[in-house]
Structure formats: structure tokens, C-alpha cells
């Protein structure tokens, strides 16, 4: 039986200079504020469809993505707002996309679950569980065949581990020694089904090992651990030593989506995990080390809120794609570059 209880809050020294530490903290705060506002705008009817919030899991995307380089490829899931933001997509373009506006990163064709950004090599937002894994294998294959120094980081949840795509992809990547990182954000639930109710083997690293793929596990609530572990995996992949599986043990503080009454978990469990919240525990460690003052934190938070307000204003002012353009972007236009 897997332990749903939270471990003690992340603690210990932060091996980063102040500037780097505050940049990562700021990114976590930016995600948190953006997600809170998204939920609010969903309630206001501005955002529709499915909306999956990343609140609670911020340390994973921020720590992992800061261990990657601009030339690397990112493949994500439908819970990808945070990854898109940290990767460098403009918050305004994300918000406008969730509003369904033409100014969104996909002109309103994708919505919350399909954020893409060619400039930062963000290959989506995939709303089929496990759907991104084969894609990541192919991106890794292309990089290898073209001798590009490019690692592909593929994010997915613990639910994806039950899909055939997971097993086929790990096998292919290991067989062909591709520079792919399989980044599993294990938040203990595939939608409303706890991992021990869906997996006969709940030690996910064992599954990777069965494909001859080394696996690392990190406390996904501890941004320092996430960053260090990802860095180790990236170094190995970049050196041509093949793929790697990384499990980030994390927790989703909010419901699966906006339609989830959370009947499958105890409130006490959620509260217990909140004591390990990645933002306040990291802030506390930085303050203890003299790398962060309360005033600095408040300024950071105010900046994030201002960015969110500007993003909302941008989305509100955005326009609707004309219905006459409905069939655009189904096929590539002739004479496209």
C-alpha cells in the first residue's frame, strides 16, 4: 500500500546564489497567481472547456525546466500552463488562448490543454494521456539522426504509466539510446483514481528499470531536489548515454479539473500535503539563509499579480477569430514558408 502521507517539509541548505534562487521562486509565484486567476476567470465564465490547474506542483515544472536549455524540446500534457509559462511563453498569450482569443498562442484553436510555442520548442499541450510520449521519442530520434545537441523532456502524470504508449515509448527510447527524459509528475492520482487502485506495481522507477533505463526519484515539492535530479539526468542524456526516467513525487492541491467534487481523497490528506507547499517551504529556507526578505517576497508577489492583471487585460481586449476563417490551419497553406 502506497503511503499517501506527506513526508516532512523540504528543508536544508539551498546551494544556489540569491539571484538564481529568487528567479526560480518568482517563477513558482507567477504560476500560482496565474492559476488562481484562471480559476477565477473560469468561475466568471471567461474561460471554458476543461481547465486543469498546476497549483501545488509548481516546484516540478520550475525546477526541471530551469535545468534545461533553450535548444531542448519540451513535450507536456493538458496540465501544462506552468510549463508553458516557465519555458518563456508570454503569460498574456496563455491567458488569451484560454479565453479563446485570436491573440492566444494558438489563436484560440487549442485552449487550456493545447498550449504550443514554436519559438521555445514547446511541442504542446497533449490532452490524450500518454499521447506525448511517442512524440518525444520521435523528437529524440530526429535530434540523434541530425547530430543535434538537443534533449527532449517529456512531462506526464502517474496516470500515463498505465497506458501502452508509456511502455512502447520507454522501450523504443532505451532500445535506440535516445536523448529523452521521461519526467513523471506523480501526484498520486490519475484524475480520481489513486495510484494503488490502478497500478499493480506502484514503484514507478521499477517499471523504467525493466526497460534497462536508469531512473531517479526526487521530492517534487522540493525545488532544489527537482533541479538537481533533472540536471543529473540532462547531463547524462546530453552525453549520449540514452534516456532516463525521473519521478517527481508531488501533489495537486486543487481538484483534477473544474468539474471535480474530490470524493476520492480526504481533506486531511490535502491539508497535510499543503504543509509541504513548494512556495512557502522554499521561501522559508531562503529567509533562514538570508537570501530572501519579506519585503522582497511581497515585491515578487506584487510583480506576479501585476503580470496576471496585464495578461487578463490583454485577453479581455483580444478579438475573436472571424468565423470565415474557421477552416484555416487544417492543412498547411500553399506557398507557406
Amino acid at each position: 500500500m502506497i503511503d499517501h502521507h506527506a513526508a516532512p517539509p523540504p528543508a536544508g541548505p539551498v546551494p544556489w546564489d540569491k539571484d538564481f534562487a529568487l528567479r526560480l521562486l518568482a517563477d513558482m509565484v507567477r504560476i500560482r497567481r496565474m492559476e488562481e486567476k484562471s480559476a477565477e476567470m473560469y468561475g466568471a465564465g471567461k474561460i471554458r472547456g476543461f481547465l486543469h490547474l498546476y497549483i501545488g506542483e509548481e516546484a516540478t515544472a520550475v525546477g526541471a525546466l530551469h535545468a534545461l536549455s533553450p535548444e531542448d524540446n519540451i513535450v507536456a500534457t493538458y496540465r501544462e500552463h506552468g510549463h508553458a509559462l516557465v519555458r518563456g511563453l508570454d503569460m498574456a498569450a496563455i491567458m488569451a488562448e484560454m479565453y479563446g482569443k485570436r491573440e492566444g498562442c494558438a489563436h484560440g484553436r487549442g485552449g487550456s490543454m493545447h498550449l504550443f510555442d514554436r519559438a521555445t520548442r514547446l511541442f504542446g499541450g497533449n490532452a490524450i494521456v500518454g499521447g506525448g510520449l511517442p512524440l518525444a521519442v520521435g523528437l529524440g530520434l530526429a535530434a540523434k539522426m541530425q547530430n543535434e545537441n538537443r534533449v527532449t523532456a517529456c512531462f506526464f502524470g502517474d496516470g500515463a504509466v498505465a497506458e501502452g504508449a508509456f511502455h512502447e515509448s520507454l522501450n523504443l527510447a532505451a532500445l535506440w539510446k535516445l536523448p529523452v527524459l521521461f519526467c513523471c509528475e506523480n501526484n498520486l492520482y490519475g484524475m480520481g483514481t489513486a495510484i494503488e487502485r490502478s497500478e499493480s506495481q506502484t514503484d514507478l522507477c521499477v517499471k523504467a528499470a525493466s526497460y534497462n533505463m536508469p531512473a531517479l526519484r526526487a521530492d517534487g515539492m522540493d525545488i532544489v531536489a527537482v533541479h538537481k535530479t533533472t540536471q543529473d539526468a540532462v547531463t547524462r542524456a546530453r552525453a549520449g548515454q540514452g534516456p532516463m526516467f525521473v519521478e517527481y513525487q508531488t501533489y495537486r492541491f486543487r481538484a483534477h479539473s473544474m468539474f471535480d467534487a474530490e470524493l476520492y481523497r480526504q481533506k486531511a490528506e490535502v491539508e497535510e500535503w499543503k504543509t509541504r507547499g513548494p512556495i512557502h517551504t522554499f521561501s522559508a529556507r531562503l529567509k533562514a539563509e538570508g537570501k530572501l526578505t519579506e519585503a522582497e517576497f511581497l515585491a515578487m508577489d506584487a510583480a506576479a499579480n501585476a503580470e496576471v492583471d496585464a495578461a487578463v487585460a490583454f485577453a479581455e481586449a483580444g478579438t475573436w477569430e472571424p468565423v470565415e476563417d474557421l477552416l484555416r490551419e487544417v492543412m498547411t497553406p500553399e506557398n507557406a514558408p
Binding site: G131, L133, P134, G138, L139, L141, A142, A143, A165, E168
Partner: peptide
């Protein structure tokens, strides 16, 4: 499923 998806990724790459 795996190798057709990988071909899609390779095309994108």
C-alpha cells in the same frame, strides 16, 4: 502506437 507517434515526433524534429 509507439513508432507511428515517434515518426510524428521525428517529422516535427
Amino acid at each position: 502506437l509507439g513508432f507511428v507517434g515517434a515518426a510524428i515526433g521525428a517529422a516535427l524534429g
